[in-house]
């Protein structure tokens, strides 16, 4: 085993253990902020895996999109909506947990089966390294043009939806109609401002 392959193996082991434990942490930890940060760690480790596979462009895109945009937005949302709320204990939590655990285990078994039965061609196609960027661009504008455009339309729809939700013209009308209440309070409190102080 040469130095290169052994470092690659070590890196792979470290990255995959970080991904697995991090993903478990995202699901199992109670503190939602910790979960979000762990998610960022998982995304970064996935980018590391891409790097190991010699796909540096995909790795950078992964960091840019998932860590830089998605995860930051998740964190943003969590921190802005920082409402303290007493959560009621859900009835039959244990049974629910058991069932969801079963579903997850089933999915895992399915994945394992796919993993074992598929005939993975080793070694796979040769990594193209530097020219990967050009190749990805070519593919995006030829055979994957339709999914690419559909994805952009989807994103546009999401953006318009967000803008519509954020405008909320309704709320300002409600606010205007409640003007009379503070007026009353002021009127009541200003009844005897000019106190007669000559008696003392």
């Amino acid at each position: 085993m040469t130095i290169a392959t052994s470092t690659e193996l070590i890196c792979f082991l470290i990255l995959s253990s970080v991904i697995v434990s991090g993903a478990l942490g995202v699901v199992l930890i109670d503190n939602i902020v910790y979960s979000a940060f762990l998610l960022g760690g998982v995304f970064m480790s996935v980018a590391g895996l891409y790097l190991l596979l010699n796909a540096s462009f995909v790795a950078a895109a992964q960091i840019l999109v998932y860590v830089g945009a998605v995860n930051v937005l998740i964190l943003f949302a969590i921190m802005l909506v920082n409402k303290q709320e007493e959560l009621k204990p859900i009835k039959g939590l244990k049974i629910r947990r058991f069932f969801s655990g079963c579903v997850c285990a089933g999915l895992l078994a399915l994945l394992f089966r796919v993993d074992i039965t598929t005939n993975w061609a080793t070694p796979g196609p040769k990594a193209i390294g530097e020219i990967a960027t050009e190749r990805i661009g070519e593919h995006l504008f030829t055979d994957y043009l339709l999914p690419f455009e559909l994805a952009s339309v989807l994103l546009l729809m999401a953006m318009i939806g967000a803008i519509v939700l954020a405008r909320r013209d309704v709320i300002s009308i409600e606010l205007e109609s409640t003007d009379s209440i503070p007026q009353n309070i002021i009127n009541n409190s200003t009844d005897n401002v000019l106190l007669d102080q000559s008696s003392d």
Partner: peptide, 11 residues
């Protein structure tokens, strides 16, 4: 790479 890396900072 720089653009991608600088997006980690806000985290």
């Amino acid at each position: 790479l720089w653009i991608a890396l600088s997006s980690i900072q806000p985290i």
